[in-house]
Measured scan of single mutants.
Amino acid sequence: TETREFDNEEEARKEAERLRRKGQDVQIRKKGNRWELRRT
């Protein structure tokens, strides 16, 4: 599992969408005042 953190939700969602188009399974969750993007 690979995780990346983003400062805002929009960036996290854009990156998640990009990875999903490549066929990756991605989850986003709020972590304090940041957003965590998890690739499984």
Rank of each mutant, 00 (worst) to 15 (best):
K30C: 08
Q27F: 11
R39L: 15
Q27V: 14
E15R: 02
D25I: 14
E11D: 14
E11T: 06
T3V: 13
N8I: 05
G23R: 02
E11M: 06
L37D: 04
A16F: 12
K22N: 13
L37G: 03
A16S: 04
L19W: 09
K30I: 04
E10F: 11
R4Q: 13
K30W: 04
R21H: 07
R34K: 12
E36Q: 06
W35G: 02
K14F: 10
R4H: 09
Q27P: 00
Q24C: 15
D7E: 09
T1W: 15
R13L: 14
E15S: 03
I28H: 01
E15H: 07
D25Q: 14
A12F: 00
Q24I: 15
I28G: 01
K31E: 06
E2Y: 14
N8C: 08
G32W: 00
R18T: 07
E15T: 05
I28P: 02
Q27K: 07
E5R: 07
E2V: 13
K22S: 12
T1Y: 15
R4D: 06
F6N: 00
R39D: 13
R20F: 05
R29S: 11
T1P: 13
R39N: 14
L37W: 02
V26P: 02
E36R: 02
R13V: 12
R34Q: 08
K31G: 02
R4I: 14
K31W: 03
N8F: 07
T40E: 08
L37K: 03
N33Q: 05
R34A: 06
N33P: 13
G23K: 03
A12G: 02
E9R: 08
I28C: 07
N8S: 14
G23V: 01
E36D: 00
E5T: 13
E11H: 05
R29Q: 11
E2S: 11
L19D: 00
T40Q: 10
T3S: 11
E5N: 07
N33C: 10
R29K: 10
V26M: 06
Q24M: 14
R21I: 07
K14H: 10
R21V: 07
I28E: 00
R13E: 10
R4N: 07
R18H: 08
D25K: 12
T40R: 12
Q24E: 13
T40Y: 10
R38M: 14
Q27R: 08
E15F: 07
D7V: 06
E2M: 13
R29N: 09
R39H: 15
E5D: 09
E17Y: 08
Q27W: 09
R38D: 09
R21W: 06
T3Q: 08
K14P: 00
R4A: 09
A16Q: 07
R4T: 11
G23I: 01
K22D: 11
R34C: 14
R34N: 08
W35R: 00
T40H: 09
T40I: 14
G32S: 01
T1S: 12
N33Y: 04
R21P: 00
L37F: 00
R38A: 12
E17H: 10
G32E: 05
E11W: 03
E5S: 13
G23E: 02
G23N: 03
N33V: 04
K30M: 06
Q24L: 15
L37A: 03
Q24W: 15
R4M: 14
E36V: 12
T1E: 12
E11Y: 03
V26L: 04
G23S: 02
E15D: 02
E17D: 11
E15G: 02
I28M: 06
T40N: 10
R38V: 15
R39I: 15
E9Y: 15
A16T: 02
R18S: 08
R18E: 08
E5W: 15
R39E: 14
K31S: 08
E10T: 08
T40M: 13
R38K: 11
K22W: 10
E2K: 10
Q27N: 07
T1R: 10
F6G: 00
F6M: 02
T1G: 12
R20H: 05
R4L: 15
K30R: 11
R13N: 11
R34H: 12
A12H: 00
E10P: 05
E17T: 09
R29P: 02
W35K: 01
G32L: 02
V26T: 05
L37R: 02
L19Y: 07
D25V: 14
R20M: 07
A16K: 04
N33W: 03
N8A: 04
W35A: 00
R29T: 13
N33L: 05
R29F: 14
R21C: 15
E9A: 06
E2L: 13
R4G: 05
N33H: 05
E11P: 02
E17F: 06
R21A: 13
L37M: 04
F6R: 01
E17I: 10
G32V: 00
T1M: 12
V26R: 01
L37S: 03
E10K: 08
E10R: 07
F6D: 01
D7P: 06
E15L: 04
R29E: 09
T1I: 13
N33R: 04
N8H: 05
E10I: 09
K14V: 11
Q27T: 13
K14E: 13
T3D: 07
N8D: 10
E2R: 11
R4K: 11
R34E: 03
R18V: 09
G23M: 03
N8Y: 05
A16V: 06
T3C: 15
G23D: 03
R21E: 09
R29I: 15
F6V: 02
E11K: 04
K30N: 05
K30V: 05
E9P: 06
K14L: 11
W35E: 01
E9D: 02
N33S: 06
R20T: 05
K22E: 13
E11G: 04
R34L: 08
G32Q: 03
K31Y: 04
N8Q: 05
G32I: 00
E17L: 10
R34W: 06
L37V: 15
D25F: 14
E15Q: 05
L19H: 03
D7T: 07
E5I: 14
V26D: 01
R4Y: 14
W35V: 00
Q24A: 10
E11S: 07
E15I: 05
E36K: 02
E36Y: 11
E17K: 09
E9K: 06
R20I: 07
L37H: 01
R39Y: 15
K14S: 10
R39A: 15
E10L: 09
G32T: 00
T40P: 07
G32P: 00
E9H: 07
R18C: 14
E15M: 08
R20Y: 05
F6L: 01
I28W: 03
E10Y: 11
W35T: 00
E2D: 11
R38E: 12
E5F: 15
E2Q: 11
V26Q: 01
T1A: 12
E2H: 12
Q24R: 05
A16D: 00
E10S: 07
E11A: 09
E11I: 04
R21S: 11
R34F: 08
R39V: 15
K31I: 14
E11F: 03
T40G: 09
Q27H: 10
V26A: 05
A12S: 01
R38I: 15
R34G: 08
R21F: 06
I28S: 01
T40W: 10
T1F: 14
R18F: 09
E11V: 04
R4V: 13
G32A: 02
R4S: 08
K14Y: 10
G32Y: 00
K31V: 14
D25R: 12
Q24V: 15
Q27A: 08
E11Q: 07
K14G: 07
R13P: 00
W35I: 01
G23P: 01
K31H: 09
E5G: 06
E17M: 12
K14I: 12
Q24P: 02
E15Y: 08
D25N: 13
V26Y: 10
E10G: 07
E36T: 04
E10W: 13
K30Y: 04
R18P: 01
L19R: 03
L19I: 04
E15A: 08
Q24T: 08
T3K: 09
E2N: 10
W35D: 01
N8M: 04
F6H: 02
R29G: 05
R18K: 10
R13F: 12
E2G: 11
R29H: 12
R29Y: 13
R38H: 14
R20E: 03
D25P: 09
R13Y: 12
E5K: 06
N8K: 05
